[in-house]
Nucleic acid binder design. Structure first.
Length: 151
DNA sequence: GCCAACGTTGGC
DNA sequence: GCCAACGTTGGC
């Protein structure tokens, strides 16, 4: 079982939206490194839901990977924001997952708090200039993160 | 295959 | 709104 961190802008899709929807296709990732991480996710993995481009940015809650290795259908839809004319149904370029709501943290963990607790090596998201929207979190770091939510 | 121009992300 | 970081595109 692996841990991950996945970013979303709460104005677009937030932890509260996921709490309402219960499950959601994590579509629209169009970065190869992020896609490769999505591809290596397995059902039952745990992902931290990170709110980006908001004040303050930070981790809002937890989700689980509900379905793995899902083709992102938006790549085939002409006119869709995420349409990729170079991708075909025979050889899809973009894969993703379906996530399921787990819980919203009682105490939101702000980026400032993350920076105070973790080095950029321990938690990539605290690294300045990091634009990757999906990234792995090692087990030790994930456990420390979870204890932060209890205080 | 290099690299300048361009576009996007996302913190501040 | 600014801009640093950095991935992508396209001319050559």
């Amino acid at each position: 079982m692996n841990y991950w961190l996945m970013k979303s802008e709460p104005d677009v899709y937030s932890i509260d939206d996921l709490a309402r929807d219960k499950t959601e296709l994590w579509d629209g990732v169009r970065n190869y490194q992020a896609r490769n991480f999505l591809k290596s996710m397995a059902v039952g993995d745990i992902a931290f839901f990170y709110h980006s481009n908001t004040k303050p940015p930070g981790i809002a809650g937890l989700m689980t990977i509900h379905q793995a290795g899902v083709v992102d259908h938006t790549q085939f839809e002409e006119g869709n924001k995420y349409y990729d004319p170079k991708s075909t149904p025979d050889a899809p370029r973009w894969y993703t997952v379906v996530v399921a709501y787990e819980r919203k943290f009682e105490h939101y963990i702000s980026l400032d708090q993350l920076k105070a607790t973790f080095s950029p090596e321990e938690l990539q998201v605290v690294k300045r200039g990091n634009r990757l929207s999906v990234m792995p979190v090692d087990t030790e770091t994930a456990k420390r993160l979870l204890t932060l939510t209890e205080s």
